[in-house]
């Protein structure tokens, strides 16, 4: 187990390094940040001064080495726009995104699994057919459109919930979050639901498929033959078997939620990392983009690791140590 974790962490370092290479050179290709930063009426000497100040006069290879040296000591460079360290900017925006992703993950679980169970246990009921039809919509409707409709309905027409922003935050257990205030919870509900929609649908479908498949296994029949109450047959014998694929998918989806909440954050003006990324991309703020993408890669690697460990907790047949990772 320990060897497994160490091996995975070493792989993570390699992946992050490769990512930095791709992103650094990639961002360099899409445009010259100088055009964005300097006012059009600046003279040549001023332009050159800025270029030199940002280190952009150096060959790209040298710039990269310089960047790597910084990264080794935790310095991803300063944002061209804000003049602040890129890492600090991202960390400032991270809690908002993490709480959004967490809430929508929780929504996916507490809505998706029960609905999937209903649809799987009683596939012939009208309610089940309704759930499945809704899940297709959840998959196929574009996020931005659903987001706008949610705002229209709940914020504009009904006026129940605020449409934008993060609301009040409070500090609890050393974490500042909008989850600790009523106002914050009101603000997070719509964007989280919007972000969760595809995942709820995904979980419904996974759960239903798992239930339908597992229900006819001999061990479920045997559990019934033992005279166990139906709640235990479904809640333990069935549930524990279908959780395995659900945990895997949700783990990976959580990474996706963190990384690609861009659309939702933009629509709901949620001050998270996704919004920061979009702004930085538009302004060719290379250090921020590079740092952001590297952190996301790190997230994915860590989440994969956690999923693997959870997996072994759920499925006794999986032994992490014996397996080639």
């Amino acid at each position: 187990m320990t060897a497994f974790v160490i091996r995975r962490l070493m792989q993570a370092v390699l992946v992050v390094f490769l990512m930095s290479l791709i992103v650094f050179f990639g961002v360099n290709v899409i445009g010259d940040p100088v055009d964005m930063l300097i006012s059009p009426d600046a003279d040549q000497s001023e332009i050159e001064r800025t270029i030199r100040a940002l280190g952009l006069d150096r060959p790209i290879g040298e710039q990269y080495l310089y960047f790597l040296k910084g990264v080794a000591s935790g310095d991803f460079g300063n944002s061209f726009i804000f003049g602040e360290p890129a890492l600090k900017l991202i960390l400032q925006h991270m809690p908002a995104t993490v709480e959004l992703a967490l809430v929508s993950l929780i929504m996916a679980v507490i809505l998706g699994i029960p609905l999937g169970f209903i649809a799987g246990l009683h596939p012939e009921r009208r309610l089940s057919r309704g759930i499945m039809a809704a899940s297709i919509l959840g998959f196929s409707l574009p996020t931005f459109w659903v987001g706008l409709m949610l705002i229209m309905l709940f914020a504009v027409t009904l006026g129940w919930l605020p449409s934008t922003g993060r609301g009040d935050t409070a500090v609890f257990l050393g974490v500042e979050s909008s989850l600790w205030t009523r106002d914050g919870l009101g603000h997070i509900f719509l964007p989280a639901l919007n972000l969760a929609l595809t995942n709820i649908s995904l979980v419904i479908r996974l759960t239903r498929a798992g239930v339908r498949e597992t229900m006819h296994q001999d061990y479920i029949k045997f559990a019934r033959a033992k005279g166990l109450p139906e709640s235990r047959v479904v809640g333990v014998h069935l549930m524990k078997n279908i959780l395995i694929p659900i945990v895997t998918v949700l783990g990976l989806e959580f990474g996706g939620l963190l990384a690609f909440s861009v659309v939702t954050e933009t629509i709901f003006a949620w001050p998270g990392m996704g919004k920061l990324l979009i702004d930085s991309l538009l302004q060719l703020d290379r250090p921020v983009v590079v740092a952001y993408l590297m952190i996301i890669v790190l997230f994915f690697v860590i989440i994969n690791l956690v999923v693997d460990i959870l997996y072994s907790a759920l499925d006794p047949r999986v032994r992490l140590g014996d397996r080639d990772a």
Partner: peptide
Amino acid sequence: RTLRGAKVAMIFQDPMMTLNPVL
């Protein structure tokens, strides 16, 4: 349900499939 497994019990054909693999 109160009779099943208490008064009337059953064993199945394939022992590989009878026991729940995750418990």
